[in-house]
């Protein structure tokens, strides 16, 4: 029993091997990722960094299951998601991944609470259970009083907090964040990063974040650098 638990704890949540992805532009094939190997432990917070075009967003998209690799494996909690069919992959994302985007990507016609509720509509929950989950997710990002506000009535920072609540509400193992502070001023960005770090510590979520911002990267436990589609060793993050 104990041994089993240790083994589970030791196995990385994300195990990427020989991952490659190329884009075709006309007759040209442009390699974006070339033979990437990467392990991310459970409850780890990593930052993917690298110059534009280095392939960091592509890697994030592949980990999140919204893009398909041309070769290699992406095992997440033991499931090779590269092998999943499109529908299965959608269901897998609904159950296992929370998304945080640079521009928040809230649906403007839905209130904050309705936006947070959206991923729960894909889970077999009653209306009442959904509302309970939404309330606790909004409480976690300290936006209970803004539940009925629409995105255009919220500041950028508040909108990103709603997006974080939406990412958390299904209690996924993995949260992917693409430049989560990229559209925010420095102070607000710092608040969002503090919130992410806090959620990571308190809830033990595995977070994979793409960022340009060294300050944001500094919040992560580990930095992964990409250059021209290949991982390069970077300095260890200061982290928490």
């Amino acid at each position: 029993m104990n041994a089993g638990r240790n083994l589970a704890a030791a196995a990385p949540l994300i195990r990427i091997r020989a991952l490659s992805r190329a884009y075709r532009r006309g007759t040209q094939t442009i390699p974006v990722l070339q033979g990437v190997d990467l392990d991310v432990q459970r409850a780890e917070f990593i930052a993917l960094m690298g110059p534009s075009g280095s392939g960091k967003s592509t890697l994030l998209n592949l980990i999140a299951g919204i893009d398909k690799p041309d070769g290699g494996r992406i095992e997440i909690a033991g499931v090779d998601i590269a092998q999943l069919g499109e529908g299965e992959l959608a269901d897998w994302r609904a159950a296992h991944v929370g998304f945080i985007f640079q521009f928040y990507n809230l649906l403007p016609v839905l209130s904050a609470a309705e936006n947070v509720e959206l991923p729960l509509l894909l889970a077999p929950l009653t209306r009442r259970e959904r509302h309970e989950h939404v309330a606790s997710a909004l409480a976690m990002v300290r936006l209970t009083d803004r539940a009925d506000h629409y995105p255009n009535e919220l500041s950028g920072g508040q909108q990103q907090r709603v997006a974080i609540a939406r990412a958390l509400v299904t209690d996924p193992q993995l949260i992917v964040a693409d430049e989560p502070t990229g559209d925010l001023d420095r102070v607000t960005g710092a608040e969002i990063l503090a919130l992410l770090g806090d959620l990571h510590r308190r809830l033990g979520k595995t977070i994979v974040m793409v960022t340009h911002d060294p300050k944001a990267a500094a919040c992560a436990e580990r930095l992964v650098h990409l250059e021209k589609g290949v991982l390069v060793d970077g300095p260890a993050a200061g982290g928490h």
Binding site: A64, I66, E86, G87, A90, D91, R93, A94, A95, F99, F101, F103, N105, L107, P108, L118, P119, L122, R166
Partner: peptide, 14 residues
């Protein structure tokens, strides 16, 4: 388009 991408990413099917 962005909303469609968001819905799909969250797990809504085509």
């Amino acid at each position: 388009v962005a909303e469609i991408g968001t819905l799909r990413a969250i797990g809504f099917r085509r």
